[in-house]
Amino acid sequence: MKALAKKNLADALALLAGQATVWVPAKVAGVTRFAPWSPAVTLDLEATPPAVSPKEILLPETESLYRYSAYGMDVTFEAVEQEVPPTIIWGIHSCDVQAILCQDDVFLSREPQDAAYAKRRAATTLVALACTTPGPDCFCTSMGLEPAEHASTDVQLHILTDGYGVEARTARGEEIVARLAEKGLLVETIEPPAKAQACTRAVNPEGIDKKLVEMFEHPYWDELAATCLNCGACTFLCPTCHCFDLTDHRRNAHEGTKIRCWDACMFTEYTVMAGGHNPRPGKKERVRQRFMHKLRYFPERYGKWQCTGCGRCVARCPVHIEITDVIKEVGEVTLDG
């Protein structure tokens, strides 16, 4: 296997940053999140996982779609063309690679594809980094993932004593590896990559997608939802949550820009319809939707869990509503209740 020594990491990133925007996990104002690499960036490759997922790279929290103007009958539209540079996400973990596959399912697998997402996704190369020491809330193995590697990344980095084992998995990945090799940044090694420690949390989701079909009216949701604040912490931190709202950036009564920004099924006004009716009027309906979506509707539709076990929602829910508990408890409750 080829290896990139730790001391060459900065050179490797600098080399790649010459031709692409290279997103790396970094400390930004005290929070670990992905940031475009520059020599000024403080890398934080130890965070498992980074507090903020790389979701925002492919699905920005806010983006402009088109500009409009309407003066009387004189109405015009003009698309906002986003510049999409070649993009590399460096140091993404298995959970977040899997999350991108979920996003692909949503935005690309059926017609019509989401144009803005498609464009960014096509320009993106994933360089995954093995996770050997899972964080306190990780449970990706329970969701069927392998912290040490992911099959659907372009390049997989393995942890070595003093660097990273570099393994290309796609033609795109080969290209990156070739460029690093060309500059003499890679060496051959026979050192076996470090093994991943077991995930801290373990649950067994097997069969709960089927069980949830019978649980729409189960009293379980009442109790679970009673302490939820209906905030957006869980969904906004989640790498697979993809709901958005289309709204306006108004310049005046006539002109503005249609923007898309993240929205969350946990918000009270998320399902409010014109006229005021809210089909999900209470906490119970909203909390149920979140878990039903992740553990039943999504698997039904796309054949995979919409939870990758990254543990972010577990770590930051203000009232400790933990999806690991939900998986466990849904597995345990009796259905006739």
Partner: peptide, 30 residues
């Protein structure tokens, strides 16, 4: 990230209709 956890946990933020939930009126932006 405008998750509003700070608002929703707060006993002083107790408006029935928070200005940040009434985006369509044009005062606040999402």
């Amino acid at each position: 990230i405008r998750c509003y956890a700070c608002r929703n946990v707060c006993p002083a933020c107790n408006c029935r209709d928070c200005i940040f939930d009434t985006e369509k009126k044009g005062w606040v932006s999402k």
